[in-house]
Amino acid sequence: MTYAIPALDERARSEAQERLDGLVKPLGALGRLEELAAWLCAAHGTVPPRPLDDVRVVVFAGDHGVSASGAVSAYPRELTASMVRVFLAGTSGVNVLARQVGARVRVLDVAVDADLDDVPEEVRAAKIRRGSGSIDVTDALEPGEAARAFAAGRRVADDEIGSGADLLIPGDMGIGNTTVASALVAAVLGLPADDVVGTGTGIDQAGRARKVAVIERARARAGERVSDPFELVTALGSACTAATAGFLVQAAVRGVPVVLDGVFPCAAALVAREIAPEAARWWLAGHRSTEPAQAFALKALGLDPILDLGLRLGEGSGAVQAVPVLRNARAVLTEMGRLADLA
């Protein structure tokens, strides 16, 4: 399938740069803010860009079979279901940080290994399955589930954009997420497992060695199937990966900017780029994670993180903190005086 993804408006970018050069400052003195202001103009096709008033975070939650033994995470997999309720209560890290910038947070049960009968139906409506297979010994998904999850992610993006979203942030929640993300990054980029594995939720070096071994077994089992993105997600990913990839592709189709968060959304972005290469032009990197796999993914995507705060929480928490920087970039272009107007 092909996707009609609009190009960024290079005329608007050029006009924005000319305007930035004429502001009351030395050329390039506002550094990255100028680059971001011009990018927003290209995305919106207008100078100055439109306000980023309606920011939406969508947290895709799911469990991974690879976490069942407890060997790859410092926390039990039951925490995923508990965290869904924390998001709904508004007390998670991303909830708190989102409130500071006026962003809204939505959580979806895509593949939590529990029946969350006590949460609203709209949270459970995106569910594809309970958990996923342990990728070192079996496929993560059944045939057809990756495509279903991808389509579900596209619908979520349409829902958010249709109700007024100006900027989208994909968040993630799932014990074992960094293992799956690292496996995907290693497979897409052809990297050794030892290069991409970090400490995740805070495991020690013995735990890291176990993660490396898990990913090596998973990649050996998947073999050549990694050349097809849907087969890749079926073998090594998760329903949440596919849903996030669909979310990213559809945002690009609709011409709405996305700010990527940590390693899991960036791994999903690599998958999304395999499906729709032009989609990547609509994404920014919100922050640099401490996970090495994210650094490799960002380099491959050609993205330079806006922030570097040593974060590893996930949930969309780092990307949310980049929103004020984007708003400041717009404000510079909108409100600063011009050199030509000086007396």
Rank of each mutant, 00 (worst) to 15 (best):
Ser289Ala: 15
Val258His: 05
Asp195Gln: 15
Thr201Pro: 00
Leu97Tyr: 14
Val101Ala: 07
Ala329Ser: 15
Gly223Asp: 03
Gly133Ser: 07
Tyr3Cys: 04
Arg11Ala: 13
Leu40Trp: 05
Ala29Lys: 02
Ala297Asn: 08
Ser134Asp: 15
Leu52Glu: 03
Arg104Val: 07
Phe264Cys: 03
Pro277Trp: 14
Asp113Phe: 00
Arg288Ser: 14
Gly202Ile: 03
Leu189Cys: 12
Ala7Asn: 10
Asp159Phe: 11
Tyr75Arg: 13
Ala7Gly: 07
Gly144Met: 13
Val72Tyr: 05
Ala43Asn: 09
Leu333Glu: 08
Val59Ala: 03
Val156Thr: 13
Ser289Lys: 04
Ala285Phe: 02
Arg208His: 01
Val197His: 05
Val325Gln: 11
Gly22Cys: 13
Leu79Asn: 14
Ile215Thr: 08
Trp282Asp: 06
Phe150Leu: 14
Gln294His: 04
Pro120Asp: 10
Val119Leu: 02
Gln250Tyr: 11
Ala319Val: 06
Leu52Arg: 08
Ala71Phe: 04
Glu142Cys: 09
Ala103Thr: 05
Phe264Asp: 00
Ala340Thr: 10
Thr290Ser: 14
Ala183Cys: 07
Gly262Ser: 10
Asp54Arg: 15
Arg85Pro: 00
His44Lys: 02
Gly316Thr: 08
Ala268Asn: 06
Glu145Asp: 15
Cys266Gly: 01
Val212Tyr: 04
Ala235Phe: 01
Arg210Lys: 12
Gly246Leu: 13
Ile215Cys: 08
Met1Cys: 03
Ser132Thr: 15
Glu78Lys: 01
